[in-house]
Design a protein around this nucleic acid. Structure first.
Lengths: 198, 198
DNA sequence: GTGAGCTTGTGAAAAGGATCACAATTCCGA
DNA sequence: TCGGAATTGTGATCCTTTTCACAAGCTCAC
């Protein structure tokens, strides 16, 4: 379920005490209904206590496990522009098992520059790094014009999941998972709702 | 529907000739089924021609209108770090009615610096700019710690829609629309599918 | 120990999407 | 002009998700 990350985020924003949280409380914070929360969590196995709620710590662990956050997920970022820099410096990685192992760019003037504790490398370094680090997630932070070839490069190198920030639909083999994050799309959805205001 | 922006993107990536496109073709590019495309487009009113397809230009216009892209949408960006810079320099704005009218930061050393054709301003300038420009969309590109107060600032200033890039769930009045874009969440969804691979 | 007050887990009903399948319509070549 | 190929629009069906409702279970105060 796509809601698990939200629950996890909410749980982590909660104070340590009390040690339990009710589905209603969690639902309020996450802006969903309590029934939805309970159904979602029951899908992970029933670990709540009736009359009390869910143990926050235990629940965090459970969601983490379900999301695969107990494993190590090395990540490569292609594109060292503003967006790539923002991603490379993003703090939320360390605690979650995601670890940026390489940042790459086609621009020779950027190669060799330090960025977020790493050094920007050339695109030709991707296949080797992917293999030696067992990288399964690649992030496309390039301009739209380079997105498709970057996607090809990543899939050929053996990356199984791609997070695409470029505003184009990239074509990949059916075995590769892609998620698109596009500013224009998000803005369009916002303005759509503004126009069709309820 | 959240698929309209994708269709629009696909249509714009298509060459000028031929002037029409079939639901099947569009579906292939957008990675959905042709029935879905037809249902979605019929919701906009029936403007396809049987045996031929949809007129691309007319369809673009129709989707644009539905998404409200024929109107002007001034946008403010709060946070002039790497992410804010990436957004301010993002090219996809001009053609779409979205227009960045202000970039703001709390850091005095950043205020006054040029950024994407604008000048970084102080947070106190937000309410005035929002009102004088009729801004209805605000983008939060601050660190997580400043996200909530930024959201408060924006809603108080009269912004009706917020695009939040900070990895926290912000609380806003129920009349305000929020969309969250969070790298950690996206990565978690990707790794979830990797763990539960089909 | 008992009753009152919460809260979970879950079956059943409702709602919402997605898919199927095909009649209706158009184009085009002969 | 006619027949066949292509393509839309949409009713019917299926499947997934959401919501509802409530019995079952836990805690606490007295």
């Amino acid at each position: 379920m796509a809601r698990l990350p939200v629950y996890l985020q909410c749980l982590e924003s909660l104070p340590g005490r009390p040690a339990t949280v009710s589905s209603q409380t969690l639902a309020d914070i996450a802006s969903v209904t309590s029934a939805k929360v309970r159904k979602d969590l029951s899908y992970l196995g029933s670990h709540g206590v009736r009359g009390v709620g869910y143990d926050k710590e235990q629940l965090c662990l459970l969601i983490r496990k379900e999301l695969g956050l107990t494993e190590d997920w090395p990540v490569v970022i292609v594109g060292a522009g503003n967006l790539g820099s923002a991603l490379a410096n993003y703090g939320g990685f360390g605690s979650s098992g995601y670890r940026v192992v390489g940042v790459y760019d086609a621009d020779p003037s950027k190669i060799g520059q330090p960025l977020g504790g790493l050094t920007v490398q050339a695109l030709v370094d991707i296949p080797g790094d992917v293999e030696s680090n067992g990288v399964s997630i690649g992030v496309i932070a390039t301009p739209a014009s380079a997105a498709q070839e970057t996607a090809d490069l990543l899939t050929t190198a053996g990356v199984g999941s791609i997070l695409n920030f470029a505003p184009v639909v990239v074509r990949v083999p059916s075995t590769t998972r892609v998620r698109n994050v596009d500013l224009a799309t998000e803005l369009q959805i916002l303005s759509y709702y503004s126009v069709h205001a309820r």
